[in-house]
């Protein structure tokens, strides 16, 4: 039994870590702007494409990793300045539509550049190496991801709790207008949020695409949506919540992918049920259940609607 479940569990934890890195970007932006940044998944995908092209240009790998991080951060920053900043006082729906527009634009831009073909992600030594844990052979990235995720999250929480910019972020997410009156430069705070979010998405993309090998213009949308669901599940605005949610979703999704085989080997079913079809749908079912049972998520704060 353990031998059947363990490989799926392992992949689940790894994918969960990658979702967590994307989910943080969603949850931080939502905490401050109350905006579902639909373009975040595409920023994640663009990070993958940038890495492919930098590596193909022949520069050393460490440099292309560094440049990928920088370029992704620059893209996240630019997207916020161009598409969200002019709509600061507009209704929330307009900003969300703008986010959808950005997502559409980024996907089409990548389609144009790549010609719509699958791009092969470069192998990062050490990460791509094979490793065997408890009799299951997998890539090193599977083991590294959860550790790296936890380190980054702890660092981020320290940043938010113990630095001046972190304090400003917390203030802005509590009350947008009052913090502006208190002399916080909200545009800087918002830009910082997008920079941190994009940086983590870039790290996430390196881990994710090392695992999956290929990048295409639509690669970002599913992981993006799932990461968003993770953020809602954990309570949007809460960073630990997003991380826990991401791991739950990553693990469940992969268990469902293998559920047919697991059930078959355990003798519960005798034929293939085709349950793997529902691995994506499960995430959304989870979302709907959590929204109905506890709309604020696992760690979310309770909000009241004022007239």
């Amino acid at each position: 039994m353990f031998n059947t479940v363990f490989p799926y569990l392992l992949t689940g934890i790894s994918v969960g870590g990658q979702y967590a890195l994307i989910a943080i970007g969603y949850t931080m932006v939502y905490g401050i702007l109350r905006l579902i940044n639909f373009a975040h998944g595409d920023v994640f995908m663009v990070a993958g494409i940038v890495m492919v092209y930098l590596n193909a240009s022949g520069i050393p790998l460490w440099l292309s990793i560094l440049l990928t991080l920088l370029i992704t951060v620059a893209i996240g920053f630019t997207v916020e300045r161009i598409a969200y900043k002019p709509l600061r006082s507009a209704p929330r729906m307009s900003v969300m539509i703008s986010a959808i527009g950005v997502s559409y634009t980024l996907q089409n831009l990548v389609l144009y550049i790549t010609g719509g073909l699958n791009q092969f992600y470069p192998k990062i030594p050490f990460f791509s190496n094979a490793v065997t844990i408890f009799g299951v052979s997998t890539k090193m990235v599977t083991v590294v991801t959860p550790i790296l995720t936890v380190i980054l999250v702890v660092a981020l929480v320290q940043l938010i709790n113990h630095t001046k910019i972190g304090m400003a972020m917390r203030a802005v997410s509590k009350d947008f207008e009052t913090s502006q009156l208190m002399g916080i430069k909200i545009n800087n705070v918002i830009s910082t949020t997008f920079i941190i979010g994009s940086f983590l998405a870039a790290v996430g993309s390196m881990l994710y695409f090392t695992n999956y090998n290929t990048v295409i213009q639509t690669s970002g949308s599913m992981p993006g949506l799932k990461a968003f669901v993770a953020a809602v599940f954990g309570g949007i605005g809460s960073i630990p919540g997003a991380v826990v949610g991401a791991f739950v979703i990553g693990i469940c999704e992969n268990i469902i992918k293998g559920l047919d085989i697991i059930l078959f080997k355990a003798g519960i079913t005798t034929q293939n049920m085709g349950l793997a079809t529902f691995s994506d749908a499960f995430t959304f079912a989870l979302l709907i259940i959590i929204l109905i049972v506890k709309p604020t998520g696992l760690f979310g704060e309770k909000t009241t609607d004022k007239v």
Binding site: A281, F284, L287
Partner: peptide, 30 residues
């Protein structure tokens, strides 16, 4: 019945989720 109680962006994401679930159900080989 369950979803319309949600507000603005939560409603958006929940309906998006339902569309994805429907898509999965229609592809199920059973």
């Amino acid at each position: 019945l369950p979803v319309l109680r949600l507000k603005s962006d939560y409603l958006a994401i929940a309906t998006l989720g339902f569309a994805e679930i429907i898509r999965a159900i229609f592809q199920w080989n059973k």
